[in-house]
Nucleic acid binder design. Sequence first.
DNA 1: GTCTATAAATAGATAGAC
DNA 2: GTCTATCTATTTATAGAC
Lengths: 204, 204
Amino acid sequence: MSEKAQNQRGRYHHGELRPALIEASFGLLAESGLAGFSVAQVARRLGVSTAAPYRHFPDRDHLMAAVATQAAVELAEEFGRAVADAGSDPAERFVVTAGAYVRFVGTRGAGFDVIFAAGLERLQNAALTDAGRHLMDLLWELAEQATGQDQETCLTLVGQHLVAAHGYVTLYAGGFFHRQETIDEIADLAMAASRTLLRGTPTG
Amino acid sequence: MSEKAQNQRGRYHHGELRPALIEASFGLLAESGLAGFSVAQVARRLGVSTAAPYRHFPDRDHLMAAVATQAAVELAEEFGRAVADAGSDPAERFVVTAGAYVRFVGTRGAGFDVIFAAGLERLQNAALTDAGRHLMDLLWELAEQATGQDQETCLTLVGQHLVAAHGYVTLYAGGFFHRQETIDEIADLAMAASRTLLRGTPTG
DNA sequence: GTCTATAAATAGATAGAC
DNA sequence: GTCTATCTATTTATAGAC
């Protein structure tokens, strides 16, 4: 019995390998970061051979693109949840997306660096492009409602807001905050930065 | 003659290999990023064998620590230059360090992610620790002069300021700004973010 | 101080068996 | 659809010649 349990690893992974590869990729990214990501490691996590992934994705970048697309979709869902929980204050509805971003990247390992990775745009993946654009539109709308400003101002604010959140989470992953800050504390810092940015942006 | 010129590569690199390795590491980091860094590549750039670096550094991490230390020193110099050029307005003297950071990382390839890399603190490298602390103290002082606020507020502002600058430069390197923005334009964006943060921070 | 040669990992990817 | 086996390339690091 325990023999069978052991043999389940290293043996067939029936039918659902493609989504399982994507899910295992998130786990590896969360633990090892983009630098530590490899197709072989993902396969090992699932107990399949290192050749198996290539039945579902032609190469590493196509797997990454699938992960990036799902990350964008999940991130949009997280933004939606955070905004729904934030109440009715337009400023706060914008601000909470910074916290949601930090928590998402902290737990799932894939953020804008993966979603908008330089090497992936040559794949011309429409699903990925659309998911990325949807994400940006969502933030742009929240910024507009929070500031009442023109498109240019909102675009600048969204950029600053995201860049700060991304900076916090990457420097956190890199060990910059040598104290033992939790991901929730980093999320609070990112939201505080977003509030400061909003205070420094004209409203009306 | 051209034969000799060719043979200069692949042959002895007299006497100055240690600093040359550090300098070549910056070049590789600037072109390929932290992920694309390898001791072997650095050696190839200098036309020495892949074994040669190990006469000067016991392992990869010790080379990285030397690079990180020099990056911290150079970055402090760049901050000094930028501040000196900024004139007398305390706010602007603080803000320009964001631009200096972006330009430095854009051209040299090594920023806070390298200087405060997680794996390097176990080396207990005093020179690196001191250089990093000096960098932070410099920014803390500029923030104090710009805001006149307490230590806590300044620390928060410096964090937000750095995190935004770092976020801009990493997302720029990652291809997030698919437009053909130059590093100077990204530096301007980082300074604009810093001004917005300063506006959103109480002064007095 | 640098070289050649080499070892042991690990990576991405392919061919062909089952 | 997954496996075993294999190829090629690359990495970190060491041993020993010069």
